[in-house]
Design a binder for these strands. Structure first.
Lengths: 209, 209
DNA sequence: GTATCGTTGAAACGAACGTTTTATTTAATC
DNA sequence: GATTAAATAAAACGTTCGTTTCAACGATAC
């Protein structure tokens, strides 16, 4: 239970944005949920948009920083190791606390949010990370054409985003047959699938224009 | 150029919803774009929510119907054939016309939309399709545990959703190195990657609770 | 020609939105 | 204890939203 207003706003915003969407969450319901005065949003942050940005950056920045740390610690890594460096910070951050699932949908939806002012900054925040991971994968798989590497990292990101964004979908399919609270099991499933996809043969012809 | 009001509304709604998001698109800007009176939305459809549902179903129903057709036409199919039956209707519908890319983001975001009234119906619409494809994949890969099959179909859906939802992301990465207007090339990339992931070994232990 | 039904046009409704303003409270400094 | 600055509270701002109302229009059937 956070004690100060700013944190309470961030926590409530995270919860409500991810469960109802950003545009569907009013500052009135948000401040009511946070037990905070309505004007607090525009006092501590300048606007609702700035609050949205703060909510996202609070979670994404540590994840991306950790990704780069893990990646740079590897020497001649396998694709499994590269994927672990990419997936693990997100999976662990999301499933760490009880609020994790809340963060998950938020992150998962980041990649496909409409062309808001927000999207631009999120993409800029991801661009550097993606660039470095593309290079690393290309080095690990010199036989795969560059364009195909791009496609396949794109797919890897989709796996992560969809795993976070549509948890309830797979849970509905599984009906208890899947353990969603074990980060290692989820990581193993994702890395096993994605590494096999990255290594796949048969698309050696570059589909460049 | 559609001539009647109802179609003009559906087309404009499809365009604006996918580019700006549903909540961020007002009926005023929508009817202005469609060159239609404001009251037309509540006359032809009952509400904005019903319009949203109509927009989605107009695209999703033919795709899902075609998926089931293609799947049922296969006998003892390979995973490549199953994935083709799942991916092809969506890819071809999305890239068919000039408005295809517009539809893409809309479909891509369906899977991770917040818990609206909309999401429930979309999920119900997808549930039957998913169930049949799970069965088919399980039959093609008897060695893979059922829980793992669920995870991996989940990943396959994520690949599709993210390919549609975040096209501009990969295009920004690729800078012209990728041909996004060739359905067959996209299908090949997706199927090559996903089929290798589906067949992957190493996750034989079921992560059931 | 007149009545009828489906459709469109223009205006208005009440509600909810993000934001701003003005007071009041709280806490630290001298 | 008075002074100052930061934080909270309460109220109002103007705007925009989805929806409704009611009048006008156009075609078809009598």
């Amino acid at each position: 239970m956070p004690t100060d207003t700013k944190e309470r706003l961030l926590d409530s915003a995270e919860l409500l944005f991810s469960s109802q969407g950003i545009a569907n969450t009013s500052l009135r319901s948000l401040t009511e949920h946070a037990k905070v005065n309505l004007a607090a949003v525009n006092y501590h942050f300048q606007s609702k948009d700035a609050l949205v940005q703060a909510v996202l950056f609070r979670r994404m920045n540590p994840i991306n920083q950790r990704r780069l740390e893990l990646l740079s610690a590897l020497q001649n890594p396998t694709v499994e190791q590269i994927l672990d460096a990419f997936y693990r910070p997100a999976v662990e951050a999301v499933l760490a606390g009880p609020e994790g699932r809340t963060v998950a949908r938020l992150i998962g939806r980041l990649y496909s949010e409409p062309g808001d002012l927000l999207a631009g900054q999120v993409r800029a925040l991801m661009a550097e990370v993606i660039r470095l991971f593309v290079e690393s994968i290309q080095r690990a798989l010199p036989g795969v054409p560059p364009a195909t590497v791009l496609w396949r990292l794109h797919f890897c990101i989709g796996i992560l985003a969809h795993t976070f964004g549509a948890m309830q979908l797979i849970e509905g399919m599984a009906r208890g047959r899947i353990a969603y609270d074990d980060p290692e099991a989820i990581l193993r499933q994702m890395i096993t699938f994605a590494s096999a996809g990255l290594r796949a043969e048969g698309e050696s012809t570059c589909a460049a224009s």
